[in-house]
Amino acid sequence: MSWLFDFWRSSIGGKVTMAVTGVLLFGFVVAHLLGNLQLLAGPDAINAYAKWLHDRGALLWVARGGLLVVFLLHVATAVRLSRANKQARPVPYASEATVQATFASRSMVFSGLTLLVFVVYHLLHFTFGVTNPGDFARKGNGAGGFDVHAMVTHSFSVPAIAVVYAAAQIVLFLHLRHGLRSFAQTLGLCHRRYTPIVERLATVLAALIAAGNAFLALSVLAGIVKVAQ
């Protein structure tokens, strides 16, 4: 397997790792959003969905493990590449300027780190129940006997939490927009006709995901989803 490690260690291998893990994470984010949209269908739907997921047993753990590996690989590769990039350009210009690079592309490290912090918080919040134990402990007919609907709606009825979640989506939008654009370029998929389409599609997809997530986060405050009693 040393050839695989060598590949990862090469510059382009690193890029490809970012692209492939990135697109897998994107797939997860899509699935995550589609599942969560069931919040709109009422308490039973979302709780049934959560329970169904939980009942997958070993399969769920495999999926979680896989996701964790992909995520860690994404982060570790990003750390390695960012360090190498910093070393390659140790001295800044006295007069810095940018000609055509997008804000999203220039802020990938910032958006990535922000998302990392957010993901940790998100896990502590909804998966481990550390930050809002009161909401987390509500019993119901969801996964593991918990009431997922109640947990989510109670949390999002707190303006600070809803705003944090929604704000994170702006960062997610920037990260996904550049990530999706770069995916095709990094894997060498370029074409005079299709590349501009891919670039537009990247913006649209990133916007849809971010908007969908933000919509859910703000839906309770907006009164679209009622807080569970």
Partner: peptide
């Protein structure tokens, strides 16, 4: 690619300033 990496150049993050 190996030679490029050995020289200590950084990595592409698809910002396209080079093209500009």
């Amino acid at each position: 690619v190996a030679a490029m990496d050995a020289e200590g150049f950084g990595n592409c993050t698809n910002q396209y300033e080079c093209e500009a």
